[in-house]
Design a protein around this nucleic acid. Structure first.
Lengths: 138, 138
DNA sequence: CCGCATCCTAGGCGATACTG
DNA sequence: CAGTATCGCCTAGGATGCGG
């Protein structure tokens, strides 16, 4: 190393919670925000209660790249439900009627995501400039 | 939908920057924080300037799961450099001597990551409880 | 309408061997 | 020491079809 090894011990504690094994949700939750759909789902659910098919539709129209598949939407919602971010309510058998909404915890996570999105947007000019500069040198 | 479609228009603008194509770094940067190594790299680089091999060593010892491969470390650093988060300095030819440190932008991103980590840790009890509850019902 | 099972593909990541 | 190239695995995620 060059000058550090000073703050490394301090990092160790922070890192202990960064693992993914068990009781260590940090990496798992960061992975949620980083994946293809979850942040988008949180943003939509932030507007109210949504049924599965409507959610699928609005996600498609918002992402504009490509629609989420039904399978993945179910998977993402399941994960969010398991982590206590989303509440799933069934009010019909055949045809099923299932709706999803954020829990308090989920609303908190949405707030964090929005804060992060805000920071990135505030610095998107600098990021874009760095990329342009880097790509020109290469 | 159930009651919404109210906030959807407002979401559209937020979403426009959420894409990944070009000039839309939101998804890309969220992906950075969500991936296997980048946040850890940012945390270590937050302590000072590091050479490639030392960085690899300390990451291995901090993650405790498995070491990062040299290839992936290079890839991650390259991406961070391209996005303006990390500065790469070469001071030797053979053997090469390359060191990495955060830029101001990178320090800012690290701050955001730490804020997010803090939130997750503050709520890890609730998350863990939700998981336990969910897994028992299943 | 919602979820599940199946199949398939693209990409992230690890391992190894090689150059300057 | 740092980087590249090649390989192979494994997971995220898309497409389709079925059943309640």
């Amino acid at each position: 190393m060059i000058d550090q090894r000073a703050g490394i011990a301090a990092l160790a504690a922070e890192m202990a919670a960064h693992g993914t094994e068990r009781d260590a949700p940090v990496r798992a939750v960061m992975g949620l925000l980083g994946d293809r759909w979850t942040t988008l789902i949180l943003l939509v659910l932030g507007t109210g209660e949504w049924r599965h098919a409507d959610l699928k539709r609005v996600l498609a129209q918002l992402s504009a790249e490509q629609a989420i598949s039904q399978r993945v939407l179910t998977l993402k919602l399941r994960t969010l439900e398991r982590d206590g971010m989303v509440l799933r309510t069934v009010t019909g058998d055949v045809p099923p009627r299932v709706s999803y909404r954020l829990t308090g915890l989920g609303a908190g996570l949405l707030g964090e995501a929005q804060r992060l999105i805000g920071w990135i947007q505030d610095h998107s000019g600098a990021i874009h400039a760095a990329r342009t500069n880097f790509d020109q040198r290469a």
